[in-house]
Amino acid sequence: MSEKGISTLGREGLILRLKEAQSKFGYVPQEVMAELAQSLEIPINEVYGVASFYSFLSTRPLGRNVIRICRSLPCYLKGAQTVIEAVEKELGIKPGETTPDGRFSFQLANCIGLCDQAPAMLINQDAHVELTPEKITQILRMYK
């Protein structure tokens, strides 16, 4: 956002404010949705409808770091499955789950636009490319 700041935006700021909550709390808590509904004068179900539509927003708590491994065809062809298995082994969780210590949530993503450097993943906002099972251990160590 540039000059205005997102709090001055009306309805058009809803997604930005949901994203703000997402990065602050790691998810969009119900209290935040209730506040947004009140300040925008829309019913909470409408806020929920928006929040639940987008895959980078979560209405349930996620771990401190969110791993999104691309599972679309270009990454799949380059062995994304072995990378997925390496993460599963390293963290002891399956896609869709969060580690008990809350350090990582693990998700599979649709094409993230890094197909020339496949297989690829995002951890939070960082792109990691040309992944191999061996690289996974090192990369995950960077996130506390």
């Binding site: 679309s72 065809l73 270009p74 649709n110 094409c111 636009g113 890094l114 197909c115 020339d116």
Partner: peptide, 8 residues
């Protein structure tokens, strides 16, 4: 917002 699989 290029999201088509394989587009970058």
């Amino acid at each position: 917002d290029e999201g088509e699989v394989g587009t970058f």
